[in-house]
Amino acid sequence: MRILAAMSGGVDSAVAAARAVEAGHDVTGVHLALSRAGGTLRTGSRGCCTIEDAMDARRAADMLGIPFYVWDFSERFRDDVIDDFISEYQAGRTPNPCMRCNEKIKFAALLERALELGFDAVCTGHYATLVSTSDGLELHRASDNAKDQSYVLGVLTAEQLAHTYFPLGETPSKALVRAEAAERGLSVAQKPDSHDICFIPDGDTRGWLAEKVGAEQGEILDRNGDVVGSHDGAHAFTVGQRRGLRLGVPAPDGKPRFVLEVRPVTNTVVVGPKEALAIGEISGARHSWAGAAPVSPEFDCDVQIRAHSEPVPARATVAEDGVTVVPDVPLDGVAPGQTAVLYVGTRVLGQFTIDRTVSAVPVDA
């Protein structure tokens, strides 16, 4: 096959490209330039799309003896990921930019261009596996649960899976990938993993949002609507947050309070007891299936609401207006804007963006 290897500059994508070459494929490497800030340099292990990363990707491609290009996707990244991130926060939701990047950039914009240029598939260093069945390809968890990245790939469709290649999915551990990189002479063998939001390299999300959307003082309310404090901008708060609330009125029971809801229209934040973070139902209109759609409109599954959270057994219902999931035990601290990924065993069935949550604890409890 003609393979376009997406090379971020990290060890995973470098080894994935190396394995594609070793498997006999015709491989071309590409690094995506997602920022037009020409002086951007990597800060510690933050970020994944800097000048240093592009140079590391080029060195890996040279070592593998494959053609290498840098493609400027900065405008598309700004429109589909950064602007979406800002607008979601302005709407009081908690977005996942990595999901949007996979959905809109790596497996939409990149794959579209790859197919236009005659490539058969895009290769990445994600830890996930593809299984061929009589119903088509299925997306499954990686063999290494600690590194499993199937959650952030839950947005992929059947058509995208048909042109995707994950060489690392069966690797038992990240340590083995690093050892393999060292054996191959790749300079990124011990490079730290990237983390946090790549377009906020210093990790100060609150400060970055304040600069982008401004800050306006508002009220902090309890679940009964009583004012218990003030804030400098609702966008700076996320559901489940405990620190930095600066409440002027203590809780009657003296226990800490947590952010339960962010209301951007009124610029208010609602706080309450930790128990009120327990969510008994979630639903969302925007959904997709990673392969064949479920046969029945109601089915048992596992639901996962964060990249590294534990899956929870649940009952899902699919209707014209979206997907509703009722977990067997309440979910903790779910916020609208998060992505719920549905699994059946190790298989990724699909995903939806959470629009609505229902607390498992009544207001007067």
Rank of each mutant, 00 (worst) to 15 (best):
G233P: 02
V15P: 10
N102S: 02
G185A: 08
G207F: 01
R36W: 00
S87M: 12
M99N: 05
I305R: 08
R315M: 04
V348M: 02
R223A: 12
A14R: 04
A365Q: 11
T317H: 11
G254F: 06
A57Q: 03
H140P: 13
R42D: 14
A215N: 12
F77E: 12
W289E: 08
K191F: 14
V329I: 13
W71D: 15
V228A: 10
L110F: 11
F199D: 00
A307H: 15
C123A: 13
V21K: 06
V303L: 04
Y69K: 10
C123R: 06
D302C: 08
S230A: 12
R36F: 00
G291S: 08
L41K: 14
P313E: 07
S87V: 07
V152R: 12
F85M: 04
T133A: 09
I282S: 04
V21E: 06
D193I: 02
I279T: 15
Y89P: 00
S359C: 09
T205Q: 11
P336E: 09
S143R: 13
G214H: 06
K147Y: 07
A121W: 00
T357R: 08
G240E: 10
L4I: 07
G169N: 08
S309P: 03
Y127S: 01
S283H: 00
T353Y: 06
L4D: 04
R36G: 15
L41N: 11
A215W: 01
Q190Y: 09
P252W: 11
E281H: 02
L130C: 04
V131I: 10
M1T: 11
V70D: 00
A16K: 05
H231V: 10
L331T: 03
R242C: 07
S194G: 14
G39C: 06
V358I: 08
G280M: 04
H25L: 06
P252R: 01
G185Y: 12
G244H: 08
V11F: 12
H231Y: 07
V262H: 07
S13Q: 08
D80E: 15
E52P: 03
F107M: 09
A335Y: 15
S132N: 14
A6I: 03
C301A: 15
V361M: 12
I282W: 11
Q241V: 09
G345D: 06
T324F: 00
A5I: 03
A16R: 03
R141W: 09
L64H: 10
A276Y: 09
D79V: 10
L130W: 15
G337L: 03
E116G: 10
N224S: 14
L186Q: 05
P97M: 05
T357I: 14
R46M: 09
G218M: 03
D364H: 15
L260V: 08
L137E: 01
N145F: 09
A60D: 03
S194D: 08
G207A: 15
R356G: 01
A158F: 15
T28H: 12
E310G: 03
A128Y: 07
R257F: 07
A16M: 08
S359T: 13
F85G: 05
I66H: 11
G280F: 01
L139G: 09
D83I: 01
A215I: 03
R246E: 07
V131R: 13
L247N: 07
R58Y: 01
V155G: 02
L247C: 09
R100G: 00
R286N: 11
L115G: 05
G345N: 05
A319Y: 01
R2N: 02
A6R: 02
A340G: 05
F258M: 13
P311V: 04
F107H: 09
A319F: 01
A293D: 02
A6N: 10
A251L: 06
